[in-house]
């Protein structure tokens, strides 16, 4: 975290001492401004964020019109924005931003949800700018999922899938985007789609992942995702097709490919056991031990498991 040492820092101790007014429940505009100063010096002072929310809800909002409350919330959204631009990984600031969104007042008059809807919809654009700056920031991804759950945000699963496709196409190693994709699909499958649709989606997905694998076969995230798509390998035809693809790749990046190849061949053994195929897996695992000595213990365990596999 970076800290603003230059900005009024010599008096931080005095300012903090003044906040003992917190115990006296001093909820005035003056104490509010004191919290702004302290938070701009150090956005991790969680107690000061708490105090700020108390000042607003107990001392200030009750005296204001809905429009004024909305302006104050907008000011706090701006405050968290500048804090996040400097320190995009501070939990307390993201937390305060959520609080702001949840405290946007209802409009007086006809269009009841207008302010709220505007704030939440705007938030989706805001979060995309954070993910453009750092596509792996998990705070920003968590916040994105939070915003997408809002009833004010109309965003279909296809739109979210397209978003992750864009992220992945700009960098195949964006594991956060692959992860998000797995979540979009899981929720789609849980809602129920027919077998034909499922098959066509999975085939599209295999095409995308194949591109990724050919671009960087050394990236674990892609293999994790591939294994997830293959699952327990109940579809033998698919399993054989993917094994063939990996065997073609073997000459380029043997160690990563080998790991998954052994995994799939072991799944295949469960369909059709033969000593010859089992021994092939064991031979592959000793090759892997030589290629990747750091994880030797794991490959040894895999070989031992193959040796004790029941031959039914």
């Amino acid at each position: 975290m970076s800290v603003n040492y230059n900005k009024n820092s010599p008096s931080i101790k005095t300012r903090y001492a003044k906040l003992h007014q917190k115990e006296n429940k001093n909820y005035t505009p003056e104490t509010l401004s004191l919290t702004s100063q302290l938070l701009s010096i150090n956005p991790e002072f969680y107690t000061i964020w708490n105090y700020r929310r108390q000042i607003l809800t107990e001392g200030i909002f009750p005296l204001k019109s809905a429009t004024e409350v909305n302006d104050l919330i907008t000011a706090d959204l701006n405050l968290t924005m500048s804090a996040l631009r400097q320190n995009p990984k501070v939990y307390w600031v993201w937390n305060h931003r959520r609080w702001c969104l949840e405290h946007v007042p209802e409009n007086p008059g006809e269009d009841q949800s207008n302010w709220r809807k505007m704030s939440w919809v705007k938030e989706l654009r805001v979060i995309e700018s954070f993910l453009d700056a750092d596509p792996r920031n998990f705070h920003a991804w968590n916040y994105r999922r939070y915003v997408l759950q809002s009833p004010y945000v109309d965003h279909t699963w296809e739109q979210e899938l397209n978003y992750t496709t864009r992220k992945i196409e700009s960098n195949f190693s964006n594991f956060s985007a692959w992860h998000q994709r797995s979540k979009v699909y899981t929720s789609l499958w849980e809602r129920g789609i027919n077998d034909e649709e499922l098959k066509s989606i999975k085939n599209q997905e295999f095409n995308l992942i194949k591109q990724a694998i050919y671009t960087d076969p050394g990236d674990q995230s892609i293999w994790l995702y591939h294994r997830w798509l293959v699952g327990e390998g109940k579809d033998e035809e698919l399993l054989r097709r993917e094994i063939e693809m990996i065997e073609e790749l073997l000459s380029i990046e043997p160690d990563r490919c080998l790991d998954t190849l052994i995994h799939y061949k072991t799944l295949l053994l469960r369909h059709r056991y033969s000593l010859k195929d089992r021994d092939e897996c064991i031979t592959l695992s000793s090759r892997l031990r030589q290629l990747d000595p750091f994880r030797d213990g794991r490959y040894q365990d895999i070989a031992n498991e193959l040796l004790s596999m029941p031959n039914n």
């Binding site: 998990f138 991804w141 968590n142 992860h179 797995s182 979540k183 995702y225 997830w228």
Partner: peptide, 16 residues
């Protein structure tokens, strides 16, 4: 729990 076997900070969050 996620597809990679790991866990995130909440439901839907990436493994870390």
């Amino acid at each position: 729990r996620n597809f990679d076997g790991g866990f995130g900070s909440g439901v839907g969050a990436e493994s870390h």
